[in-house]
Amino acid sequence: MSHSHDDVYDRQIRLWGADAQASSSIMRIFKRMSNARVLYINLTGVTCEMMKNLVLAGVAAVVCDPRPYPDAVREVFFKASSMEAIIASRRNSSNNNGEEEQQSKKVKLLNTVAEAVAPEIDELNPLLIGRNSVEERPIALLPEEYFGQFDAVVASRLSVDEVKRISLALISVPRIAIDDKLSDPTKIEPYVSLAKMMEVPLAQATGRWDKIPPRILVLQRLLMDYWNESNKTTISNNDEANARERFVVFAKKWMDSNKITSASLDIEGVPMNLKRLAAIALHPEVSPTAAVLGGVLGNEVIKSLTRKGEPSNNVLMFSGLDGGCRSFVLCPAEN
């Protein structure tokens, strides 16, 4: 711990111990945090918030997001205003069709999201400069063992198959042994693989506190399946109305085939309008909701990195409507 580290991280180091005996263990926890690296695949509002929190806390970031900037991340807060300016100028350029603007548009398009945010990340916490990096290869080209070098992987906007591949890769890679008793990996029980989770028919996702499948879980599955099928991460303005119509058609069919009644989507007894849901599905991120979820997930990553506190297992849901955030295990019924 250098002096400047001490000063910058003082308030959070105090999270892990206040007594003299804990000094050595504080150092160890601090080491774990500062040696850790987290891989972020495809940035969204939520994962940007997570990354901001973890980078501030001293956890290095590796960003893999080859999507074009800024089109792919309209809701991401990094450089929000400059991004808006780019979009605005492009809108003008498409109207004017001026050659110069065409030129600048091409230059901008060369930027990937990862490249665009890299300087922002360094600026958030200069103590991490040199430890953050950009992964330029697309996800499909990354070998299984690649994922094993990270302490956590934060992924978003992936197809179901891609997510399954990464989650499988993470449990199959042997972890590097560290000479530190506290760092022995602790298994959180029960472990349910992502593939197994996805096997649970949604209609059966009920439990002691949930007589019908939880609304947020239903929404999440619906959106995941919709994006998977439509294979689109962004919608252009002109496409908006058509896209909404397509979503409504898809949602109706999806509910039938998953045996989900519309009651599962109701908000406190008020029926959910599928057209409104379509608008949300196409523009799903709202700043304060992303902030809350990014904070909660950041805490869970810190718990697992420091091995202080038990991180959430399996599913975590947040509803911006009432501010409740719940975690539960989703696994096939034994009988």
Binding site: D10, R11, Q12, I13, R14, L15, A18, D19, A20, S23, E49, K52, N53, L56, A57, S287, P288, T289, A290, A291, V292, L293, G294, G295, V296, G298, N299, I302, G320, G323
Partner: peptide, 30 residues
């Protein structure tokens, strides 16, 4: 008490981390 410990007590320092501040601020805006 080490200097670090004494500072925590004498300065009445409360541990703080970005994540929790992000959570409550998000909830406030909601």
């Amino acid at each position: 008490q080490s200097l670090y410990d004494a500072k925590g007590i004498a300065g009445n320092i409360i541990p703080a981390i970005a994540t929790t501040n992000a959570i409550v601020a998000g909830l406030q805006v909601l």
